[in-house]
Amino acid sequence: MSRASAMLALGAVAAFWPLPQKPPRPAPQPAAPSIVEGARLYHHACLSCHGPRGDGQALVLLPNGQAAPPLDHLAGTAKAMPELLRAIGEGGGAMPAWGLVMTPREIQSLALYVASLNPASGPSDRADSPGPTPASFR
């Protein structure tokens, strides 16, 4: 290969470098809130302080030596879900404002899971419930 043809080949590569990229894929549509996602988030963010079953049997105590409150009594009333969404998203006291790092959908999923921990809330009630909506959060 002569020097001229080598230079020509190098120029051709440079002209097309970087190669044209594929158009970006459309962002996936956000999934609906789900108890499954809520369970995953609960085990990541809530379990240590509120206990594996949400009954206040904490694995670690708060810095003041007290246990975080149980959560398994919060569902079952019409106003429980908005209050759960507010408490998780905005926090208060020693409770972090998870809305700082979780999306509204994740907070809805978490609230659904926490509500499901209530022994008094039967499966049929939950199945019929439309659950929280984005508009009901904040």
């Binding site: 963010a45 926090g91 972090p96 404002a97 998870w98 700082l100 790092v101």
Partner: peptide, 8 residues
């Protein structure tokens, strides 16, 4: 201080 995370 805001929770077990770095705030935005």
């Amino acid at each position: 201080s805001r929770g077990p995370f770095l705030d935005p």
